[in-house]
Design a protein around this nucleic acid. Structure first.
Lengths: 217, 217
DNA sequence: AATTCTTTTGACCAATTGGTCAGGTTGACG
DNA sequence: CGTCAACCTGACCAATTGGTCAAAAGAATT
């Protein structure tokens, strides 16, 4: 899903890409911290060390910039979604998916926050994605989970709620990072704490749906 | 925790309370849908059918109104927190707490969204609550969960992550209601679906931490 | 070197919006 | 009924901010 990066054809092309990436990254952070309305083009410009008028050269309107930020996040989400291997066994498929989502929460906290913000406010921009791509992905995975149930590999559970549980628990570590840091003595998680969080979430969910786990070696 | 409602002493007093309640309720909804910056006093005024200047009579600034909306939500949260009975057994205490939180997600979706928004954006207003009241409550419940572990009533799990899991899964149904409705054919959950969600979440979490459950009657 | 196209930028504008205020209205109370 | 305090409200203002534009600077091409 990730777009392969091609070589820039010229100095111009290279600079252009750098500038675009810089604006998108800065915008992601500002939008995450202040919301769509609260983020100002001036703040994004300052964060990227560019004059405001330059932003409008690359992104005609704030909405255009915001939309591209959100689309980028959605692609990252899709990338993780593919790790939910429909061929593997429950422990593998779900375990890999949960771990991948936890990694994203750690590596892309701003993107996750922008996404959360967007959905909380009624998803005015991404409504189409939810209805099409997300709905299709969800349906396909629900079918897989139902097959597992039928085969007795997991307890009978409503697959939809299982997916919601995975989404909410993993994204919580990104979206509510400030609350979590505050309850962690004011400092963000370190490597060990992230590892423990991932393990803990994975274990509880897998055990919670009665996954038949491979015997510990 | 909920403040007992006293009788109004006069017609004025009664009207005053009604107006305050109306503004707070309307503000909660507008803040939930548009965020702190995106919500305008004019929109809240229109929603409450009041002239804008009247809002400023009761709440001098938008921040004052916002702060009171957030404080009200925090009190509702505290009310649910008390249902986490430190005397009961794990199944009772956690089950009641989860169910209560699910009820709040259904009955106060706007409040939950405002709270989520606030935390996502770094909790500029409620930082004090997180550091004091929330931290104390969390510590006290962690102690209880550790006692359960010690007594062998539940598996050894990191209590902090268990709490985060309960918070995230239950609040997800309020905060991401739009996404959930979209994946539900565009309509919000009905009674039966809420009941199933509650049961499903409760079961997976309780089983996930190995709670010794009372034998089914 | 000359030309053309892309990119950069400071100055500017119009619309939005939080907040003010003076004057009017209404209820409480003696 | 008269007085006073609380309440209501239309009109207004100053600050912010998304977006524009013309002119300058820089790269590519001939």
């Amino acid at each position: 899903m990730l777009v392969p990066v091609e070589k820039p054809k010229s100095k111009r092309e290279g600079l252009r890409r750098e500038t675009l990436a810089l604006i998108l990254a800065t915008g992601e952070q500002i939008f995450a911290d202040h919301g769509l309305k609260g983020a100002t083009m001036q703040a994004i410009a300052d964060g990227a060390n560019l004059p405001k008028a330059n932003l409008h050269y690359y992104f005609p309107t704030k909405h255009d910039l915001y939309r591209q930020v959100v689309e980028r996040i959605f692609n990252i989400w899709l990338d993780a979604a593919e790790s939910f291997d429909t061929q593997a066994n429950p422990e593998q498929a779900l375990g890999t998916y949960i771990r991948k989502k936890m990694e994203i929460s750690r590596s892309h906290p701003y993107g996750s926050k922008v996404w959360a913000n967007e959905v909380i406010h009624g998803a005015p921009i991404i409504h189409d994605y939810l209805e099409t791509t997300l709905a299709e992905w969800t349906d396909s995975r629900i079918a897989v989970i139902e097959r597992w149930e039928f085969e007795g590999l997991i307890d009978p559970v409503n697959p939809r709620h299982l997916l919601y549980m995975i989404w909410s628990t993993t994204q919580h570590y990104a979206d509510f990072s400030h609350q979590i840091a505050t309850l962690n003595g004011g400092v963000p998680f370190n490597d060990a704490q992230w590892a423990q969080a991932t393990e803990c979430v994975t274990n509880i969910i897998l055990k919670g749906i009665g996954v038949k786990r491979a015997a510990p070696s």
